[in-house]
Design a protein around this nucleic acid. Structure first.
Lengths: 125, 125
DNA sequence: CCGTACGTAGCAGTGATGGTTACTTTTGCC
DNA sequence: GGCAAAAGTAACCATCACTGCTACGTACGG
């Protein structure tokens, strides 16, 4: 959570972030790369480089982050084809994808209700 | 979907279900075993054995199925501990689990709105 | 008692993820 | 211009979960 270092440090290196998450700097660069492609984070390179927020923390929702780092469909159908000779096998997929989409939408709506700023405020409270 | 064979066949063997899902009988037995432990399906053994619904299809929601077969938390925290020297690292987990629970609840509520009977009706429509 | 089909263990193949190392590229500073 | 710092990225390995398969134990009807 990038905003916490708006108390002095304008940018954070991947090493610093990795230390605070107890993981590897490369993992951080990979994840922040996703957020950067989604336009929520800026990366400066070269000497004195590091990451900073590209948008205000009040304008970044959990949903934004979720979409940037999780391309997977949350509910996946069985990989293989069902047996098309069975009447259920033929018709089940559109119905299930429909229901999946519905459930996924409510899930996303819940994520969209919280911004990074909200979360930070609740952490510091 | 077990109800479709209430047009004659009282029980289905794992082999028959596997054929209709284009998968292996053992996989079916494992999955239906979960549903059986959750009380939604009955299994008869011995000669002429097979599976049948333990409750009416109108009394089985997608949420029931989901809970029976998916014990995973849908949104998992990072496995490792965050750095506890960072103020954000210390406080973030309760906040995130809270938000995760909230989103997961709305997701489950959406699943609870559909029963197996509903799905079957939509398939045959 | 015998055959059928569930229950379950064990194993190989696959794919996703995390972690590490190493190398390239960019860029500020001297 | 050259050096050093740090992002970007590729390659590789370990781990884990899941599917699919074989095989065997177990319950139960005829």
């Amino acid at each position: 959570m990038e905003l916490a270092r708006r108390r002095g440090h304008e940018v954070l290196t991947s090493e610093e972030v990795a230390a605070s998450v107890n993981t590897n700097a490369v993992i951080v660069r990979r994840s922040l790369g996703d957020l950067q492609r989604a336009g929520m984070v800026r990366a400066r390179r070269g000497n004195g480089a590091g990451y900073s927020l590209a948008r205000s923390a009040t304008e970044i929702t959990l949903l934004d982050v979720w979409l940037a780092v999780a391309p997977e469909p949350l509910l996946a159908l069985h990989h293989g084809e069902p047996n098309l000779e069975c009447p259920v096998g033929r018709g089940i997929r559109p119905v299930l994808t429909d229901l999946y989409d519905e459930a996924t939408d409510t899930f996303r709506a819940a994520l969209a209700r919280s911004t990074v700023a909200d979360i930070l405020q609740r952490i510091l409270a």
